[in-house]
Amino acid sequence: MSLLEPYIKKNVLVLTYDGRNLVGVLRGIDQAVNIILESCHERIYSEEGIQKFPLGVHIIRGDDVAVVGEIDKELDDKLDLPSIVADPLKPIVY
């Protein structure tokens, strides 16, 4: 049983190896942690706050997945994305 199964159909955040932040509905997963995200967008962090970039349906290779977080809608709606200023997430380095 995959640890990710309970997150299916939920809104999730995926952090990738190269430091990208993807948000969408988790449609499917497999043994290799390959992921299908629906209604997906990327959140880009910069000095001008977080910008959303729509992507539609997105498949992420399991080898590129670092973290998958379950998004709490209530908390997420309260976030004022343009006011959150931070450097982009660092990539995974060995």
Binding site: L15, V33, G69, L75, D76, A86
Partner: peptide
């Protein structure tokens, strides 16, 4: 959290062992 505000709306998460 201020420096790393990437998971502000996440309560539960899955972490890949290799990272």
């Amino acid at each position: 959290e201020q420096k790393y505000p990437y998971m502000l709306s996440v309560r539960n998460c899955f972490i890949r062992g290799s990272v």
